[in-house]
């Protein structure tokens, strides 16, 4: 599973990140934003495939709403 995840992200990186990297002189910001988002989702995917439970943002919103409504 973990290997599969890494392979999938590798393919995406080759398809999209590499061309962006080559053009980074022109669109540095796009490259940086992409890289951040990409690494973030890659991290999450790896954690998920390792079976680590990621806390759901729904819980935080629940707490927030409860705090405001009450």
């Amino acid at each position: 599973m973990i290997l599969l995840t890494i392979a999938a992200f590798m393919i995406i990186a080759i398809l999209e990140l590499v061309p962006l990297y080559k053009e980074r002189g022109k669109e540095k910001r796009t490259y940086l934003v992409y890289l951040t988002l990409f690494l973030f989702s890659f991290g999450l995917a790896v954690l998920l495939s390792l079976g680590i439970r990621i806390p759901s943002p729904a819980k935080a919103i629940e707490v927030f709403i409860d705090a405001i409504v009450k």
Binding site: L20, R29, T30, L37, S56, P57
Partner: peptide, 25 residues
């Protein structure tokens, strides 16, 4: 982020969306 093209960053956002959908409940 004042980017010109929203398409270029669509892939990681879509991936994140699936991830969020998976972990949200």
């Amino acid at each position: 982020f004042s980017l010109e093209n929203h398409r270029q960053i669509a892939t990681p956002i879509a991936l994140l969306m699936v991830t969020l959908a998976y972990i949200v409940y």
